[in-house]
C-alpha cells in the first residue's frame, strides 16, 4: 500500500493506492495542520481500506503541514500532488484549479500529470475557501449550503471587494439594504470566480479544466467558473482528496524507483 497524506490549513486528507495502482480509499477530516486531523485521517483511510499501518510501504506528505509531518518518507508540494492526482483520476485535463482553505492555485499540466506552469494567490484570503467560510457565516448557512442557495438567485448583485474583510462588510450592508440571501450568495461566488479567472489568465489555461479542493464541491461555483472562462470546467472526483491521491501516486512511483 502507498499512502498520501495531504495536511492542509483547515483539513487533513489521506489516500491509499495498492500495488495495482488502484485507489483503495481516501478520507477527509476537517482539522488541519497542528491538530489531531492527520492522525484521524490516517486511521479512517486504513479502516476504509481494511489494512494496517504495517502494510504501508511508502508515504508521501503534501500540503501546508507537509514539512512538519514526520511520519512520511518524503514530502512534495500540493501543486505537484494536485497535478498528479488529477492525472491519476481523469484523462485529458490540461488545467487544474485548486481552491483550498488558505490558498488557491491554477496549474497547467501535461498528459502525465507533470506541472508545466502554475500560479498561486498572494498571501490573502481573497479567492480561497476561507472567503466562502466567512460569506457562509454572514449569510447564516453552512458552507455546504451556499451552492444550493446561490442556485436560487434571480438577480446579479456584484460584490466588488476582493478583500475578505471588506467583502464581509459589503455583504452585511447589502443584506441590511434588503438584498436577498441567495443573490448575495451568488454575488460572493462570482467574486471568487473572477479572482480565480484572473489567475487563469495569468498562467494561461486550456480545457479540460478540473477543479479540486473543497470549493469544487460547490456546484454553483464550478458552473460559474465554466461560464466565466468559456471552457469546460468539471469537478474532479473526490475533489478534497485529490492532493492526497496524487501524493499516494508519487509514493507508489518512488517505491518502485527504489
Amino acid at each position: 500500500m502507498f499512502l498520501g497524506m495531504d495536511i492542509g490549513s483547515s483539513s487533513s486528507k489521506a489516500a491509499l493506492i495498492n500495488d495495482k495502482k488502484e485507489l483503495v480509499g481516501c478520507s477527509v477530516v476537517n482539522m488541519g495542520t497542528g491538530t489531531n486531523g492527520p492522525e484521524e485521517a490516517l486511521e479512517e483511510v486504513l479502516r476504509i481500506a481494511g489494512v494496517g499501518r504495517k502494510d504501508i510501504r511508502y508515504t508521501v506528505a503534501t500540503g501546508y503541514g507537509r514539512v512538519i509531518y514526520h511520519n512520511a518518507d518524503s514530502q512534495i508540494t500540493e501543486i505537484s500532488c494536485h497535478a498528479k492526482g488529477v492525472s491519476f483520476l481523469m484523462d485529458d485535463v490540461e488545467t487544474v484549479i485548486d481552491i483550498g482553505g488558505q490558498d488557491s492555485k491554477v496549474i497547467k499540466i501535461d498528459k502525465d500529470g507533470k506541472v508545466k506552469n502554475f500560479v498561486m494567490n498572494e498571501k490573502c484570503a481573497a479567492g480561497t475557501g476561507r472567503f466562502l467560510e466567512v460569506m457562509a457565516r454572514v449569510l447564516g448557512c453552512g458552507i455546504d449550503e451556499l451552492s444550493g442557495l446561490a442556485d436560487k438567485s434571480t438577480i446579479d448583485i456584484p460584490i466588488s471587494s476582493v478583500c475578505t474583510v471588506f467583502a464581509e462588510s459589503e455583504v452585511i450592508s447589502r443584506l441590511a439594504s434588503g438584498a436577498k440571501r441567495e443573490d448575495v450568495a451568488k454575488g460572493a461566488h462570482v467574486a471568487i470566480v473572477k479572482r480565480i479567472a484572473g489567475m487563469c489568465n495569468r498562467v494561461g489555461y486550456r480545457p479540460i479544466i478540473a477543479m479540486t479542493g473543497g470549493v469544487a464541491l460547490n456546484g454553483n461555483i464550478v458552473r460559474l467558473m465554466g461560464e466565466e472562462l468559456g471552457q469546460l470546467v468539471v469537478a474532479a472526483p473526490y475533489p478534497q482528496a485529490v492532493g492526497a491521491i496524487g501524493a499516494a501516486a508519487f509514493a507508489s512511483e518512488k517505491w518502485k524507483r527504489g
Partner: peptide, 16 residues
Amino acid sequence: DSFEQIRTRVQSFAEM
C-alpha cells in the same frame, strides 16, 4: 516572517 507560501512556490518550481 511567514515563508510557507514562498516555500511552496520555490519547491513546486524546483519539482517542476
